[in-house]
Nucleic acid binder design. Structure first.
Lengths: 158, 158
DNA sequence: ACTGCTAACGACAATCACTCCCACTAACGA
DNA sequence: TCGTTAGTGGGAGTGATTGTCGTTAGCAGT
């Protein structure tokens, strides 16, 4: 989420070259575009499969590598799905602001949510118990309206 | 803690009580008591190891089984640690109320936190986007005061 | 107490997400 | 065009978790 501090330190060291050396590879672009096309959160495995379907097979390790670096750059969000799998979502370079998600547990459709109140609350709680270095995860899972409707139809059929 | 007492009581007059057919086994009690003794969240593997240290080796599958059933009964909380491992914490039968956690990422020490405001906020957001069946995870990770101090000492030594 | 039923156990195999390793490939600056 | 080296891929490895299945032991009912 907010590893910006780290990035700044790193870039400080190699200050001679802006955007030091990050090669533009086909695989990197492919991973990024698949992630960007997906509506909501998708797992590394999903992306790997999607890439394969598109006829641009990319190694699984490569997918993980790019996903990680996108997260470090702040271009993607990660959340642990309730069953422990890491899922990723493209956030664009612009959306650098800290935010949370409302995720459909059926289709993965996601709404971005920001709430100052939550941030303040988390900070308050932390200082009250004398915790430092705080970071928080707030995710809301539910069923979106379209998915609810299809679920109802299925229920009627049986 | 006195979870053993409870078990004995239950076995005394079983049929009247809830928990229709749940056998009281030594292993179950051991898992429960290790979990209860631990201050904060601990992983299944930790519990398995602790049990082994105590000289009451319990099969890993058994540990997982009991952990799951404790969670189902509401006697334990699970959260996914930031690196994706499931960690468990005893919450007693009484603490059935919905709550969240402030967890030290060094030592696992945990404070329970409840906040009406958060619940209301989550519900509001959900209804605003027409999501139903909503559920949310809110966890705050940080470094507690004692851990911060020891970390500082180590930094000074080097 | 004795017995039968079957829930619970536990060792091991299997699975699954993810990381590591390393020889090979292809960007990119000179 | 060439050399350097970041980036690639695939297979092996890891660590958590789940499934399988023969064995063990709670807990009635007698």
């Amino acid at each position: 989420m907010s590893c910006r501090g780290l990035l700044i330190t790193v870039t400080g060291k190699m200050q001679l070259m802006a955007t030091p050396k990050q090669r533009a590879t086909v695989q990197g672009g492919a991973v990024r575009s698949v992630l960007a096309d997906g509506a909501g959160f998708s797992s590394a495995q999903d992306i790997h499969a999607a890439l394969r379907l598109q006829g641009k097979p990319v190694g699984l390790s490569t997918v993980y590598r790019h996903l990680q670096s996108l997260v470090e750059q702040g271009a993607a969000d990660v959340i642990q799905s309730p069953d422990g799998e890491a899922t990723y979502r493209y956030c664009g370079e612009t959306t650098s602001a800290h935010h949370h998600h409302l995720v459909c547990r059926k289709c993965g459709h996601t709404e971005e949510v920001t709430a100052r109140a939550i941030e303040r609350w988390a900070a308050d709680i932390a200082s009250k118990f004398d915790f430092s270095d705080v970071d928080h995860t707030v995710e809301i899972f539910g069923t979106c309206a379209p998915c609810r409707r299809t679920a109802d139809e299925i229920a009627l059929d049986t």
